[in-house]
Simulated assay, not measured.
Amino acid sequence: MFIVALTYTAPLARIDGYLAAHRAFLAEQYARGLFLMSGRKEPRDGGIIIAHAASRAELDAVLRDDPFHHAGVASYEITEFVPTMTAEALAAFRAG
């Protein structure tokens, strides 16, 4: 499991120009089952994605397709973790 923390590297006016394409990218990853949760940070200086990827390499390859990455308007910090405890609704993601 991975936490992806995006930090905007451009003004919000420029970010907003890529937001629709970024959301379409997110929707594709949700459809694939790769992304489980996402949203903007408060204050609005970036976003968070919770991803369930098979490997860091797979996640890195997917994130390279993010329109924010292509436009160079965000940086990405990725933390891998092993979910040993979860809410019951997320039990399928617990590590054995």
Results as ranks from 00 to 15, higher is better:
residue 35 F to G: 01
residue 33 G to P: 02
residue 4 V to T: 00
residue 22 H to C: 03
residue 74 A to D: 08
residue 90 L to A: 13
residue 20 A to W: 07
residue 45 D to I: 14
residue 19 L to Q: 14
residue 72 G to M: 05
residue 53 A to K: 03
residue 64 R to I: 11
residue 47 G to C: 05
residue 36 L to V: 05
residue 69 H to E: 13
residue 42 E to K: 10
residue 60 D to W: 08
residue 32 R to K: 15
residue 67 P to F: 03
residue 44 R to M: 12
residue 57 A to M: 10
residue 46 G to N: 08
residue 27 A to S: 12
residue 86 T to H: 06
residue 90 L to W: 14
residue 8 Y to W: 08
residue 83 P to S: 00
residue 52 H to L: 11
residue 48 I to A: 12
residue 93 F to D: 05
residue 81 F to L: 05
residue 75 S to P: 01
residue 73 V to W: 02
residue 19 L to W: 13
residue 55 S to Q: 05
residue 95 A to D: 06
residue 62 V to L: 08
residue 44 R to N: 07
residue 69 H to P: 06
residue 13 A to T: 15
residue 91 A to D: 14
residue 20 A to M: 08
residue 9 T to V: 02
residue 60 D to C: 09
residue 80 E to I: 01
residue 39 G to I: 06
residue 11 P to N: 09
residue 63 L to P: 02
residue 51 A to L: 10
residue 44 R to Y: 09
residue 80 E to L: 01
residue 4 V to C: 05
residue 40 R to Y: 12
residue 55 S to C: 05
residue 79 T to M: 12
residue 96 G to C: 08
residue 22 H to V: 03
residue 28 E to T: 15
residue 46 G to M: 05
residue 86 T to E: 01
residue 93 F to Q: 02
residue 55 S to K: 00
residue 26 L to Q: 15
residue 90 L to S: 10
residue 6 L to I: 03
residue 20 A to S: 14
residue 43 P to E: 04
residue 30 Y to F: 15
residue 15 I to C: 04
residue 59 L to E: 05
residue 39 G to R: 09
residue 70 H to Q: 14
residue 91 A to P: 04
residue 6 L to A: 12
residue 86 T to V: 05
residue 52 H to S: 14
